[in-house]
Amino acid sequence: MLELAILGFLYDTPLHGYELRKRITALTGHVRPVAESTLYPAIKRLEKAGMLARETRPGSVAAPRHVLTLTDAGRRELRRRLAHPERPEITDENRWFALLAFLRHLDDSDAQAGVLRRRLEFLEEPASFFYEGDRPLRAEELDDPFRRGILTVVRATSRAEVTWLRATLRSLGGGR
């Protein structure tokens, strides 16, 4: 998720590390804060792989800044990751949001629709956080108001997302 966010934000515009960290934190930080000790090694890995370039530019007030830009290889890698996300990018809500934040950079509407269909299929699978034996429990079946609350919120969120996914798929020409 971190590398995807780095590639996605740098696809938008060149950034220095501090600004990149702020943007990633705004996207994912409420769940997974981004520490410098995590971000900078990821930047170095991507730079070593030829996906990022570092350029020194004069600072507006202080010392010169190292600005990161995406290379052609980085653009290709971002589009590859967007077109062919791993299952956790589809099933994990936080990873899904990171993927969704940059899906517009995938120029192929059929490929975009394919990613959205995968998410829709996942959401349409019967699931619950709580089970009785092998049978998933519905919110109405729970005596515990807190667990019932979890399932009620998840159900409402899933319904809203399914509605959005279907409408977006129709607009991309890939709806059902």
Results as ranks from 00 to 15, higher is better:
R87V: 13
P64Y: 06
F9L: 11
L68N: 08
E140L: 08
R166C: 13
A73R: 12
G133A: 06
V61K: 14
D144R: 08
L172G: 09
F102C: 06
P14R: 01
E161M: 15
L27I: 09
G173K: 03
A167Q: 13
G29A: 03
F146I: 10
T69E: 13
A139N: 08
I43H: 04
R21V: 01
A42T: 11
F130E: 12
S158Y: 11
L46S: 06
E55N: 10
I24P: 02
L70S: 11
T38C: 13
L137S: 10
Q112E: 01
R148D: 06
R45A: 05
L39W: 06
F130L: 12
E125C: 05
S171P: 13
L120T: 00
L99T: 04
L2H: 05
A156C: 05
P64K: 03
V115T: 00
R76V: 13
E19P: 05
A62E: 14
E141R: 03
R75W: 07
A62H: 14
K22L: 10
L20A: 03
R45S: 03
F97V: 12
A42V: 10
L4D: 08
R21G: 04
R32D: 15
E93L: 10
R119N: 00
I6G: 02
T69F: 10
A63K: 13
H16P: 14
L120V: 01
D134M: 06
H66A: 15
V154W: 09
L100V: 00
Q112N: 00
F97Q: 12
